[in-house]
Amino acid sequence: MNVAISIAGQTPDAPFDARFGRAESFCVVDTDTGAWTFHANPALSASGGAGVLAAQFIARLGAQAVVSGAYGPKAHRTLSAARIECFLAPGNEARSAAEILDAFNSGRLTPADDATHGGHHGD
């Protein structure tokens, strides 16, 4: 399966970015082949609805699961409609995308069944 991870950089060593809509980049890892691709987040510069835009972007990249630190209600709804499973990784410890992937593969991440916060305004 393809899993997307929000990160700040363009390599497997890049640190995890706990923001979803405003993450700097996303990597997509094919867990079957181990192939990585890196993509700048087009929603970073959006003046509003960054979560919605990022969710559509992830869907177009063909991800079936995503790992980030938090999901707003609109991002969560869009990801759910795209049948992408949302997982949470704690954002307060500095970890690399590769470490997050390990945690994902070993089933140590919690699924986010609902939005984790009330959504932002004016951003």
């Binding site: 003046s47 509003g48 960054a50 919605v52 559509q56 609109k74 869009t78 409609a81």
Partner: peptide, 23 residues
């Protein structure tokens, strides 16, 4: 619609079109 909306108030994923009134 999702492409032209400057406020990201519409999302199209798969066969579903979502509208976000508050955007």
């Amino acid at each position: 619609c999702a492409e032209i909306c400057r406020f990201n108030a519409i999302a199209v994923v798969g066969e579903t079109t979502l509208v976000f009134d508050d955007l």
